[in-house]
């Protein structure tokens, strides 16, 4: 607790949240219909609604953040407000951690429990003997009990490069931050720009890797639990890299075009940086548990 209670800013009424709620409605309702339409090859409006929802969401984010930035630039925010934002961002990242935890949990469960059980481990001797006599437990699971086959994605090639790329990007981002704190705007711009490029490079290689998986390895989303966990974990991670990169790009534009942020006040930049580091840590876990081990 601070000993002095600063003046607290309670924002005026704002139209943005309700726009955001409508956007989420369109996204959820649109996606719900779209998924049925694509998988059943039926015509429908779901996809359009989904796209409209995403557009509305972006519109909302732009509007909302413009308000917040204006307020911040006008010095309406106290230190306390800044702390609120920081805590909000950290707990948001924590909730993201838990989202990934669900998928890592599924991965570990499949590897440590489900697959050995299907091969008769634990109290499942009959499972193997009666239901899956031909199945052999292995990880990566290259042949499922149902007989789907695939090849494994080795870690030595693209995944390793990608790991290095992301690690370097965390370092460059760190230097961008110190640049900002020491008021070296040149270093800030250079390092931040570099980080974004590295992020884009990562995404590019990821796409190449997916194409390789589908075309050469037969490793697909529906190739059994190995493919499932591989694509959902790397896929959601990729989505987060994309979001993080956009986030950083916005910071870059604010710095280059508007000369925003000072050595002492740069919450948005810091939030983007935290997010980026978080995405990086997730990748390390991914690299170890999805690719290497």
């Amino acid at each position: 607790m601070s000993d002095k209670y600063e003046h607290y800013y309670v924002p005026e009424q704002s139209p943005w949240p309700i726009v955001g709620a409508v956007a989420l409605f369109m996204i959820a309702f649109g996606a719900g219909n779209y998924v049925n339409e694509v998988t059943k090859d039926q015509p429908g409006y779901g996809g359009y609604l989904l796209l409209a929802g995403i557009a509305t969401l972006i519109f909302m984010l732009v509007g909302w953040f413009r308000n917040v930035i204006d307020e911040s630039m006008n010095g309406l925010y106290s230190k306390q407000m800044d702390r609120s934002f920081r805590q909000c961002m950290s707990w948001f990242i924590f909730s993201e951690v838990m989202f990934f935890a669900a998928f890592f949990g599924a991965l570990f469960y499949a590897r440590i429990i489900a697959i050995p059980w299907l091969d008769g481990a634990g109290n499942n001797a009959s499972t193997a003997a009666v239901l899956w006599p031909a199945f052999e437990a292995a990880w990566p699971l290259l042949k499922t009990p149902g007989g789907t086959e695939t090849q494994a994605m080795p870690w030595q090639g693209l995944p390793l490069y990608n790991t290095i790329i992301l690690l370097i990007s965390s370092v460059t981002l760190h230097f961008a931050h110190t640049g900002l704190e020491q008021n070296k705007r040149g270093q800030l711009k250079l390092m931040l720009g570099l980080t974004i490029l590295l992020g884009a490079g990562f995404l590019y290689l990821q796409v190449i890797e997916y194409i390789h998986a589908y075309q050469d390895l037969g490793l697909k989303l529906d190739s059994g639990i190995y493919g499932n966990t591989f694509f959902l974990l790397t896929g959601f991670h990729g989505l987060h890299v994309t979001l993080g990169a956009v986030f950083l790009l916005v910071m870059f534009l604010r710095i280059v075009l508007k000369n925003h942020f000072t050595a002492h006040k740069h919450f948005a930049f810091q939030a983007a940086a935290w997010y980026w580091h978080f995405v990086d840590v997730v990748w390390l876990c991914l690299f170890i548990f999805v690719y290497v081990l």
Binding site: T39, A110, L118, W132, T148, L221, G227, L232
Partner: peptide
């Protein structure tokens, strides 16, 4: 969602899930 619509088998033994 992915199990139902996109062919994953998190919850399907035939694909190594449970």
């Amino acid at each position: 969602l992915t199990d139902k619509y996109f062919g994953t088998s998190f919850f399907d033994a035939a694909g190594g899930g449970d």
